[in-house]
Amino acid sequence: MMQNTLDIAIAQARQNNAAQIDLLTMNIGELSGVIPEALEFAFEVLRWGTMAENAQLEIKTIPVVCHCPKCDRDFQPEEYIYQCPRCGTTSSKIIAGKELELASLVVSS
């Protein structure tokens, strides 16, 4: 997964004629199944010998947001049981929290 991220980042940086990548920012949802520490560890290994060798990795954790069909409102569940705080309905409609994205890069020439 980190390799995919680096591949996308390097392709984008090259397209923009950049010489090196200074910062990668990723959005990782709490429900993505991915642990930020695992990405950080993989990044430490994979960045060597690439144009991201001296780059920082910033991971933004995106909290889970659900939609309650009964109240027709969004809520942030406090645990893995997605219960609406207003009416107690268990929701399976997830609005946010599954993200696995490369959000942006900072590059220099």
């Binding site: 997964m1 995919n4 991220t5 996308i8 980042a9 984008q12 940086a13 923009n16 950049a18 200074d22 990723m26 696995l100 994205e101 490369l102 959000a103 942006s104 890069l105 900072v106 590059v107 220099s108 020439s109």
Partner: peptide, 16 residues
């Protein structure tokens, strides 16, 4: 000074 740029990507890592 260092001529750093920000590139917005917003792309899924697993988009492929």
């Amino acid at each position: 000074k260092t001529h750093q740029h920000k590139i917005e990507i917003e792309r899924g890592i697993l988009s492929k």
